[in-house]
Design a protein around this nucleic acid. Structure first.
Lengths: 149, 149
DNA sequence: TTTGCCGTTTACGTCCACGTCAACTATTTT
DNA sequence: AAAATAGTTGACGTGGACGTAAACGGCAAA
């Protein structure tokens, strides 16, 4: 039967593309995770037959998603942000709203930066204190050794 | 019956203390949340009868917990960190392990700082671009007005 | 005394972010 | 032809971080 489906021949009409497995390996996540992100409306790869095909844009979004996760954003939050970004290329109303949302995010990030710096300071303190204790112990051991000899 | 339970009279034997409700209000969380943290081994307030009594130390820990949460640490992680901190006042073995853990955390925070700065930069870019679009629209509106008049 | 108000434990429910099969298809390798 | 490899869609399970009653105790003001 002369099936008209020609899955392979098209040699990437424009730019680099990726399979789901490639992306999974590159970012050290499972394919399940990537499909889940699509389910939640965060990714929308094109299809070649039934297979998903990811372009540079999709890969960039995935990067953003993972970074967002490391910063504690929820998938829903990021979905909103992406949707806004995509639809904010016109009416002033939309643009103004988008600006306000960006400002919120900025506040969030500023708070987080403070948290991060405070935590970093305390961590360094603990570190230094811990080292002091160790050095003191070493000195005590040395002292004991000198006495014993 | 002369019950020997004297819940109130002891006027705070040392330093400030807090009830669970006070802390909940102060940090804008529910009492359920605070009890949950205790369940997970993150807090261990003393008791007056059956009531929980929180001291400055407990309050400080709660602050740490909430900050940790904002930075994406899990409760289990923080529990471990606290346990380590509490028990790392002796053997060199423990101290060395503690140092290594602190180093891990530091790596985490550094990664997060990079993520944060990158996100902040992109956010500012979006912000600026968005403002440009708005200003351009204003100019267009003004132009149209001048023509119409 | 009764009515709030704050506190307690126990237990089940929920939302999020996936993990884990299962059953199937399509291609490539042996 | 058989096996290995990569992909697909369900559907159910899970762990973390609480929410949400339910049922009770203790105390202070009305």
């Amino acid at each position: 039967m002369s099936t008209s489906t020609k899955p392979q021949p098209e040699q990437e009409p424009g730019g680099t593309t990726y399979t789901i497995g490639e992306l999974a390996r590159e970012f050290d996540i499972t394919t399940r995770t990537i499909r889940f992100y699509e389910d939640q409306g965060l990714l929308s790869p094109t299809r070649v037959g039934s297979r998903r095909l990811y372009r540079r844009r999709d890969r960039a979004r995935l990067k953003l998603i993972l970074r967002g996760k490391r910063l504690g954003f929820t998938l829903a939050e990021m979905r909103e942000a992406f949707d806004l970004y995509d639809e904010a290329h016109g009416e002033a109303q939309q643009l103004r709203y988008y600006l306000s949302v960006l400002d919120e995010k900025r506040q969030h990030l500023l708070q987080q930066r403070d948290d991060l710096e405070a935590t970093m300071r305390e961590l360094e303190q603990s570190y230094a204190h811990c080292q002091q204790l160790l050095e003191q112990q070493e000195r005590e051991r040395n002292g004991a050794q000198r006495i014993a000899s």
